[in-house]
């Protein structure tokens, strides 16, 4: 599914958070959004996912959804947002219960994603018994169980330690290569953006505007290969210099607030 985003303005009260965001996320693509803290990345994702009404703007979609899709635009949250009183499998079936699936179909779907995310041994564990990485795997399993057309991920791995994050990124790439789910991905981490995205959108400091759109043409599966290392390193530098000025100015503004 393709997303056409046109957010002219978004205000919180009198505070202008976003301005002039025009962006198309093509079907099966991964678009990463980076920008300094407080520039409106989460706000943008909230608007796209229908959790926030833009003050002035419109988000539309075009194209087909996968077979059995129950929730076209689906979130993966930074804080995982699991319900601590439900087991892993209950947390996952929680988002299916209000759909009229047969019990067999529902159980099959839950079992499938649990297996896919390597959680079989923990299906009946409570979230407090899981490590951070496992918790986010539950978050991703819960998102996949509804067969989404678009994944909206708000810093999905930023609460994890560096090694776990690395493994999760690889897992996510494998998944994405298999299923080609359109993904809009918010991150602070340039490395993460450069490994996952085929387009990196750089936002300016508040009010967030699009400062640059940087395409990455190397296929995701081959980015670890040595021959592309110089290219990717140049991209990283370019992105870094794009957000550095913004970040420095944003920090200064914070200090004066």
């Amino acid at each position: 599914m393709e997303l056409i985003i046109d957010v002219r303005n978004h205000f919180y009260g009198t505070l202008l958070a976003l301005s002039g965001i025009q962006l198309t996320v093509s079907s099966g693509g991964v678009v990463a959004i980076i920008g300094p803290s407080g520039c409106g990345k989460s706000t943008l994702l909230g608007i796209v996912g229908g959790l926030l009404k833009p003050t002035d703007g419109l988000v539309s979609s075009r194209g087909t959804v996968p077979d059995g899709c129950l929730n076209p635009l689906t979130y993966v949250f930074q804080d995982f947002s699991l319900l601590p009183w439900m087991t892993v499998s209950q947390n996952i079936s929680f988002v299916l219960d209000h759909h009229s699936l047969s019990t067999v179909e529902q159980q099959r779907r839950v079992a499938d994603v649990i297996k896919q995310m390597d959680l079989s041994d923990f299906a009946h564990a409570f979230p407090r018994q899981l490590s951070g990485g496992m918790r986010q795997r539950v978050g991703i399993a819960r998102a996949l169980v509804v067969r989404p057309a678009v994944l909206l991920m708000d810093e999905p791995f930023s609460a994890l330690d560096a090694q776990t994050r690395d493994l999760m990124i690889q897992d996510f790439l494998d998944l994405w290569v298999r299923e080609r789910i359109t993904t809009l991905y918010v991150t602070h981490n340039i490395d993460e953006a450069v490994r996952l995205a085929d387009q990196v959108v750089v936002l300016s400091r508040r009010p967030g505007r699009i400062k640059a759109v940087v395409p990455i043409e190397i296929p995701q599966q081959r980015r670890q290969e040595i021959e592309f290392a110089p290219n990717l390193s140049r991209l990283r530098d370019e992105l870094w210099s794009l957000i550095r000025d913004e970040a420095i100015t944003a920090n200064r503004e914070f200090a004066h607030d």
Partner: peptide
């Protein structure tokens, strides 16, 4: 957690 549930249309 409420936003999460809403985002899945619960």
């Amino acid at each position: 957690t409420i936003r999460m549930a809403q985002s899945f249309g619960v």
